[in-house]
Write a protein that binds this DNA or RNA. Structure first.
Length: 297
DNA sequence: AGGTCGGCCTGGCAGC
DNA sequence: TGCTGCCAGGCCGACC
């Protein structure tokens, strides 16, 4: 599941190969990709555009054009962008580590570049979306959906304090709210809470300043570790060269039910919070009290 | 208005 | 072996 570190990894790989390139021909093979726009409408809007920059906001990838418009792509669960060089290769080096299908399986959209290369969007689950919008529309769109960028300087304990003030939702749900902090998903929410020693069921608004500070640091550390390792590859995620990330080998708690907590050795617990699998150490993630339990009848 | 839940999707896998 | 049914979860819309 691509979250901030995975999307940023792809962004960094696409940037040098896409900037200065033009989309000679664009094919939308599945109209779900461009929904609610039609496939032909999207193709027309993207064709002939020259890429001037590749950006990111939260989990959204921004392929920017000279006039300030941008193609916005969200990979959702299983979306994937694969870069194909002019010789038809999906990446350098040992072919065994690349996806076996070279990005043609579940192919939903392809962008033919003016140097003979190609950008391919694949997505088995059909959740991923792309659209093209102008600068004002983009501002409005992101302002309505996204909170602060956690790897920017403005992301401080105070910013977290403001966002969590008065919120009764559990910390886990709070972290998954893109309006609270942009770019965190199920993996990095669990990892950040463990690093901060905070219980996932603690009400977000009950944090004291030292908790907010610990959570801020935990979020940044978890995301930066993910970035350093090229993201986490649990199921479908591959980077733009088709390679897997390594972060899944260093999860502290996520998907580690029953295994020892790397900090205290206690068995890791799995619960469901807001419909999402949540992994934590019941022994050392208790800096805040969990919500009071209902009394037995 | 914030919180919660179900729906969108399909591949993979457990269980029979 | 092959079928059924459930699970995964980012985001959105409905509802309280």
């Amino acid at each position: 599941m691509p979250e901030l570190p995975e999307v940023e990894t792809i962004r960094r790989q696409l940037e040098p190969d896409l900037v200065g390139r033009r989309f000679d021909r664009v094919e939308v093979l599945d109209h779900y990709f461009s929904k609610p726009s039609s496939a032909s409408g999207f193709e027309q809007a993207a064709t002939g555009r020259e890429v001037t920059d590749v950006g990111r906001r939260g989990k959204y990838l921004l392929i920017e054009f000279a006039d300030g418009e941008a193609m916005v792509i969200h990979l959702r669960m299983t979306g994937n962008l694969v870069l194909v060089d002019p010789e038809g290769h999906t990446g350098p080096g040992d072919a065994r580590i690349y996806r076996q299908d070279d990005g043609t399986r579940h192919l939903k959209a392809r962008f033919h570049l003016d140097d003979g290369g190609e950008l391919r969007f694949t997505d088995p689950r059909r959740f991923g979306r792309g659209f093209i919008a102008g600068p004002e529309e983009l501002d409005t769109y992101f302002a309505a959906r996204l909170g602060p960028e956690p790897l920017s300087e403005g992301f401080t304990a105070e910013a977290l304090a403001t966002a969590s003030e008065g919120r009764t939702a559990p910390l886990k749900s709070f972290l998954l709210d893109q309006k609270a902090v942009a770019g965190i998903g199920n993996i990095y929410a669990d990892e950040a809470l463990h690093r901060a020693s905070l219980h996932p069921l603690s009400p977000a608004g009950s944090m004291k300043p030292d908790h907010q500070s610990a959570l801020r640091d935990g979020i940044v550390a978890a995301l930066e570790r993910g970035l350093d390792l090229g993201g986490a590859s649990i199921d479908d995620y591959r980077d733009a060269r088709g390679e897997s990330g390594q972060m899944q080998d260093e999860f502290l708690v996520h998907r580690r039910e029953g295994r020892p907590c790397p900090r205290c050795g206690e068995a890791i617990t799995r619960i469901v919070v807001g419909g999402r699998s949540t992994y934590f150490c019941g022994s050392c993630q208790s800096r805040l009290r969990r919500r009071p339990r209902r009394k037995k009848a």
